[in-house]
Amino acid sequence: MNVNEYVVVENIDQAYQLFNQNKKNQIIAGGAWLKLSVKEVNKLISLDDLSLNYIKTNDKSVEIGALTSLREVEMNDVVNEIDHGILSTAISQIMGVSIRNLATIGGSIMGRFSFSDIIPVLLVLDCQLYFHNRGEMTINEFITSKGLDRDILTYIKINKSTGQSYFKKISHTALDFSMLNVAITFDGSFRIAIGSQPGMAMLCEQTMAFLNQQNDISEDVIEQAVSIALTELKLSSNIRASKAYREVLAKTYIKRGLRQVIK
């Protein structure tokens, strides 16, 4: 990676302006994956002086500053209570502690990493993102739309729900990227998201709609839900797993996840 200049900005406006000045200007969050994602940077814009490293809570929600490290999110008591700690569970399985001390929640979202174990969880938690320019949008709106990358994420907000949850990362070794990951929450209604397809994570909206219409979640219903999920997912092959094997994993773990959350 080649960087011409490193700028620690004094305010978010300045950051936004610099960011949009030149396509080769880049925001740095934790920087853990920076050298893997960019080669040539003109101005590297640091937000380190903008106090974006915080976790605030009120009765209804938790607000997490974009520069909060994954480890801090993982270890936060309040985050740990949201839907049985599904976000903490997912983060705790990402690489090692030292990376999680470096990587930030904002960087993990803005990187739009298709192997992300966090995005599927944020999807089922219906996380709200707050951008400097565009304002509020859901994580689902963010990942399904294009061309938003020149905005700056300042914080995210997650509702303090206390539903049931299930998270499963399937990988070759504990340190590997997922072959597939499955996130499910249930607090009266179901939310299901699948990541590492290996393409970008997605909400299984048809499956959710189907499940949310049912009065009784029988084994039959679960089987039907799984087949709907398989039609709407966009599973494919990469070096970690074939499409066929991902289908087996999706089938197996959506089923197990559903069984667990309705227990």
Binding site: T173, A174, I239
Partner: peptide
């Protein structure tokens, strides 16, 4: 070689 770095070539970890 596609598996030419430690992100893509996986040796056993202590959890395995």
């Amino acid at each position: 070689l596609i598996s030419g770095d430690m992100l893509n070539y996986k040796i056993p970890t202590r959890l395995d």
